[in-house]
Design a binder for these strands. Structure first.
Length: 401
DNA sequence: CTTCCACAGGAACCAGCGGACC
DNA sequence: GGTCCGCTGGTTCCTGTGGAAG
């Protein structure tokens, strides 16, 4: 294909009008089928406009059910009102994603940044950092909203100490007030919490139901109107995206991704319309890309454990922890590197399970012990692709994969 | 009903690192 | 330049356990 042809294709294939509208972090003007949640959250948070401290809120719901979007949307509106009508109170919004900021220190560090308080990003004790945060906060009549998105990560990694402190902070403040909004995908999350934290943090609770297939289709249609040129979507496309995403508990984010990638594939192929087959390709591509990226970014030993799982699987279909460990030790010897302990490898297998690279399930085989049955959850091609950029593994990959 | 395998997974600890503080 | 701090990614030691075999 000549350059002329490629450019010609690009020009003739007008698929997208504004593809930004399909990005996961875009917060749209309206959030269909979340009216009830929006109203409830607005009712809870509205006192902020008059400078009163709203109750803390806890929001539950599976991924892609609009928790983050609704929260940002409501806070944005409240902030706009507060700017216009309230006197003497500074509304401040701190949004923290605890998947990245999963330690007390980092959370406090971020909070200080939101208050324009300069602090070192390591070196201080957490207690000192907390004192500085409180001091900075209490200097003015601030009303601070702390949004802790995916707060379960914070608690799993660092415990609920910081939550406890944050929820008890108000009595110690003379001028400022803090209101906390915790968001989590993990419906069993409360179990990890100290009951005292549970009661203060969960002053109000909101549960977000997953979208149904029809609701997803509505959302997609709404966004598609803004994102795509008129008439480029085949009529089967939106229902298909919706039903593929609904298979995984009504995840709107996945549905939107699917639609965007399908559009990109159609554009790349020079098709004038987005068709059903583009959606199916998109589905496979998203799965594979995710797997490849994860494998690429894994540390050496985690890769070796993955290869071991693959090798055992190829021999006999599925693998136990013990078999994987033996195979893994063999790989280490061939590379003349020190092997990790079985205890650690057991944890690595759990990590791989969380990443969706393998499926691991504890099973008891009676007299023959209790172990984990491990199955590779990604395609061989994705595995090879993810491994081939690592020069340390080239010999192993070449001959065994 | 008891035994006993092959691990799971908790607890405590450690080395090394980057970085702020004094 | 020594000290302190928290994080990461490991180790060692350990107790707990589902369920087929006996």
């Amino acid at each position: 294909m000549s350059i002329d042809e490629i450019i010609q294709r690009m020009l003739s294939a007008r698929i997208f009008k504004d593809r930004e509208k399909l990005r996961p972090d875009y917060v749209p003007e309206s959030l269909p089928h979340r009216e009830e949640e929006i109203n409830k959250l607005a009712e809870i948070l509205a006192p902020a406009v008059k400078g009163a401290r709203p109750s803390n809120v806890f929001i539950y719901g599976l991924p892609g059910t609009g928790k983050t979007a609704v929260t940002k949307y409501v806070l944005r509106r409240i902030d706009a009102f507060a700017r216009e009508y309230s006197r003497g109170v500074n509304l401040k919004l701190a949004y923290i994603n605890c998947r990245n900021e999963n330690t007390s220190y980092r959370v406090l560090f971020n909070l200080c940044n939101y208050l324009d308080e300069r602090v070192p990003f390591t070196g201080l004790s957490t207690a000192e950092l907390f004192r500085r945060f409180v001091r900075a906060l209490d200097r003015e009549r601030n009303l601070l909203f702390v949004v802790l998105d995916e707060v379960d990560f914070l608690v799993k990694v660092s415990g609920d100490d910081i939550l406890y402190k944050l929820t008890r902070i108000n009595p110690d403040l003379r001028n400022a007030r803090v209101s906390i909004i915790g968001i989590t995908n993990d419906l069993n999350f409360v179990e990890y919490l100290d009951p005292r934290v549970k009661s203060t943090l969960g002053e109000e609770e909101l549960v977000f139901r997953p979208y149904t297939t029809e609701e997803l289709a509505d959302i997609l249609a709404e966004r598609a109107r803004q994102a795509f040129c008129d008439g480029v979507l085949d009529e089967a496309v939106i229902p298909l995206c919706a039903s593929l995403a609904a298979r995984e508990h009504g995840d709107a984010r996945r549905a939107l991704d699917l639609l965007r990638v399908a559009g990109e594939i159609a554009e790349r192929e020079g098709s004038s319309k987005v068709l059903e087959e583009h959606v199916r390709k998109a589905y496979r591509e998203i799965e594979k890309d995710r797997a490849v990226e994860v494998v690429k970014s894994m540390p050496l030993h985690t890769k070796l454990v993955t290869i071991a799982a693959y090798l055992v699987k190829r021999r006999k279909g599925e693998a136990t922890t013990g078999e994987i460990y033996e195979t893994y030790k063999g790989l280490c010897r061939r590379l003349t590197i020190d092997e990790l302990t079985q205890r650690r490898v057991s944890d690595i297998i759990n990590e791989l399970d969380m990443l969706g690279i393998v499926n691991a399930k504890v099973t008891s085989k009676g007299r023959y012990g209790r172990t984990k049955i491990v199955r590779l959850a990604i395609s061989d091609r994705a595995l090879v692709e993810g491994l081939k950029s690592d020069p340390r593994l080239s010999s192993i990959v070449a001959e065994s994969v």
